[in-house]
Amino acid sequence: MTQLYSFWKTATSVPVVGAVAGKRVFTFAFSRKAPYFGSIHPRVTELRPNYAEVVVPNRRSNHNHIGTVHAIALCNGLEMAMGALAEATIPDAKRWIPKGMEVAYTAKATSDITCIAETAPEQWTGDDPDLPVRVKGVREDGTVVIEGVIRLWVTRKK
């Protein structure tokens, strides 16, 4: 189990703190490690190997000129979800780095947006260094507002 995933499990399972407060503590710490993520005021709501969810709130600081959640704030949320997934999933003998992102904006982001990153377990076991992570952002009514792929370069540690 990776250090990040171990921290998630600890933070969200402490009875005194509770799951909601534990998720806030985890999100704050994760955002401090990669400070740019903090600019979107995210909330990590789910994390397990091969799956992560990050909520990007519908708030003025995340808005564009038409009052919806800005496309780049959404991309930042997708990248945060992908990074959490990668850290919770990657085998100990491997390392990763993002190498590209392809997204399509499919609807207006008019509510909080849940950014989801997903992989299949077998993607992490092969020798192919190119690993595509499926990502999407979903409005509160279930409408997908952004979807795409973030490509990782996964290699063995030296």
Score class of each variant (00 low, 15 high):
S6K: 13
F7H: 10
T10R: 12
A11P: 06
P15W: 04
V16L: 14
V17K: 09
V20M: 07
R24C: 05
F26R: 09
T27E: 13
T27D: 11
A29Y: 09
A29V: 13
A34I: 08
F37R: 03
G38R: 14
G38F: 07
H41T: 06
V44L: 13
L47G: 01
L47E: 02
R48I: 07
A52K: 01
E53R: 08
R60C: 00
S61M: 06
S61I: 05
S61K: 14
N62R: 02
N62A: 11
H63S: 01
H63L: 07
N64L: 00
G67V: 03
H70F: 15
H70R: 08
A71G: 15
A71D: 13
A73E: 12
L74W: 02
L74I: 13
C75M: 13
N76M: 11
N76I: 09
A81Y: 01
G83N: 07
T89S: 14
T89Q: 06
K94R: 11
W96A: 15
K99E: 15
V103L: 15
A104C: 12
A104Q: 14
T106G: 01
A107G: 02
K108W: 01
D112R: 11
I113T: 04
T114S: 02
T119E: 04
E122W: 07
Q123T: 04
T125A: 14
T125Q: 15
P132E: 04
P132R: 09
V133L: 05
K136E: 09
K136Q: 09
G137R: 01
G137L: 02
D141M: 03
T143Y: 00
V144I: 14
V144Y: 03
V144R: 04
E147P: 10
G148F: 03
G148H: 14
G148E: 15
V149M: 10
L152E: 04
V154L: 04
K157N: 12
